[in-house]
Structure formats: C-alpha cells, structure tokens
C-alpha cells in the first residue's frame, strides 16, 4: 500500500489518522505517533519476570546498593555467618572486574554468582536473570544481589528484588542522601555502616544523615551497623527475619490460592 492516495486508510485505522488521532500527520506530512511508554520498559519487563521467579520459589530478594567500599561484602559475610544455619542463602555479585567478592562469599560456604559488567556501572534485570539461571531457586530462601558500587546508576534499574537496602558508611559524609536523592529516595532501609569508626570521626552525625533521608520523603528505617564489631547487626537480622516471614506468609497465600484453583 502507498502513502499517497489514501488506500492505506481502512475502517479499522481511520480514527487514528483524523485530527487528534494517534497517527495524525503533522503539517509537513510527517506521521506523529503518541507513545507514552517508559524508557526502561524492557528492563522493567525483565525485572517483573525475575520477581515472579523469586515469588514462585518463595525466595526473598534483596538489592544491596552503596558507593564502592562502604562494606556491602563485609556485611554479607557477617550476615551469612549469622544466618546460614537457618536460611539457605545465595549471592549475586556485581562488579566491573574480578571475582574477588564472589570468592569471599564462597569462602563462607554459600553459592555466589559473579557478574562482571566490564564498563557498565550498574546491574540490570537482564544480567540478574542470566545469573539466576545458574542458581537453583527452589533450594534457596534468600538471594542477596550486591550491586555495583555506585550511588548513581543502580538506582534507575529495577532488578526484580523485593527490597532495596542502601549502605552509607560513616567515612563518606552524612549528606549523601541530599547529594544522591534518586538512590536514597527509594531505599527501603538505610544502613549507616562502619560505625566502629564513629569514635574517630567528628564530622559524621547519624541524626543528620537521617534528616537528609526524611527530606526525601522517605520513611525507611535507619540503622547503625558495624560488620566488624557486630554493633547493630541484630537489628539488621531482625529486619531480614520480618521480611522473610512476610514472604512466607505471601507464599502460603499463593499456595492456598493455587490449591483452591486445582480443587
């Protein structure tokens, strides 16, 4: 069909070509198409798929984000030590290069899948999906996704996690939430890490960090934690425990619905 004589206009699409229609031509004869679609729709679609995967197997998925060196891996090591007798844990590690973090996790006796992103500054839902294929989700209770250390880009990509947890180490400055609002606005829990160093730092005020977080209209709890001294670790473990029970309750709901459908 041509675009000259109108033979491509059918009963089915005529309304689209009329003034105000989705395919109305502009004055220069160009076709203008209203779209209104999220730029991240490819990623978001994959993220929903990942979340369904986790849900089907009753797995809790946590996305850990922070700047490089704020103690994500150390927190995971301490968390695994505390929880590995109760829960089956695996970790997806995101880094630009090296398997170092994955090796640290494996040394704790749990599975770790390393994603090396090369030059990419964040994990996306597709990378996580590929990594999940290397894990047997039916044998797991919790998957931690340790995102690439970066307070900017990871914030924009849904990975299919249930909760975002952001670490802010006390060596970084308490105004980070104000400087990186995209990241901190959407976090579900803020962990102020390396608090064993607070004694020697006179310029980090945990209360101030919390005030900056509240200014982003974020109600998330704020916890002080030190993987090294163990301070605050129990608060974090309790938080995880509550998230686990929520997941299990939801899972039971899903199972009941499924069995009712079967009946």
């Amino acid at each position: 069909m041509c675009d000259t004589c109108g033979c491509n206009v059918t009963h089915g699409n005529a309304h689209l070509l009329k003034p105000g229609g989705r395919l109305e031509k502009t004055s220069e004869g160009k076709q203008s198409i209203d779209v209104l679609k999220g730029l991240l729709s490819e990623n978001d679609h994959q993220a929903r798929h990942n979340r369904e995967h986790f849900d089907r197997h009753g797995v809790l998925a946590i996305n850990l984000m922070s700047s490089p060196g704020s103690g994500k891996t150390a927190l995971l090591e301490a968390t695994i030590d505390a929880l590995k007798d109760h829960y089956r844990i695996a970790v997806v590690e995101g880094d630009l290069e090296t398997e170092n973090d994955a090796e640290r996790i494996r040394a704790k006796g749990v599975a770790a899948i390393q994603i090396t992103t090369g030059s990419a500054c964040h994990l996306d839902a597709h990378m996580v999906h590929d990594a999940l294929h290397k894990l047997k989700l039916s044998d797991l209770d919790i998957v931690f996704i340790e995102n690439v250390g970066n307070l900017v880009c990871p914030a924009s990509f849904d990975l299919g996690q249930h909760h975002n947890v952001t670490l802010l180490s006390v060596t970084e400055g308490d105004d980070k939430p104000a400087k990186y609002p995209v990241m901190f606005r959407t976090t579900d829990l803020l962990l102020l890490s390396k608090t064993d160093l607070l004694a020697v730092l006179d310029d980090f005020e945990p209360d101030r960090a919390e005030q900056y977080l509240r200014k982003l209209a974020n109600l998330a709890p704020v916890m002080l934690i030190s993987a090294r001294s163990g301070e605050g670790l129990q608060d974090w473990l309790d938080w995880l425990e509550i998230r686990m029970s929520e997941r299990q309750a939801e899972q039971q709901g899903i199972d009941q619905t499924t069995s009712q459908v079967r009946l």
Partner: peptide, 20 residues
C-alpha cells in the same frame, strides 16, 4: 516531610515523528 511525589520522576517516550 511526608509528601508524595506527583511529578519529577518521569522517564517516558512520549511521541515520535516518522517520515514515510
């Protein structure tokens, strides 16, 4: 401080123009 964002986090493709 307890507010809801009603505009400002958009990331949308809204329109394209095609020359035939």
């Amino acid at each position: 401080w307890q507010t809801r964002l009603i505009s400002g986090d958009e990331l949308l493709l809204t329109r394209i123009e095609i020359e035939s």
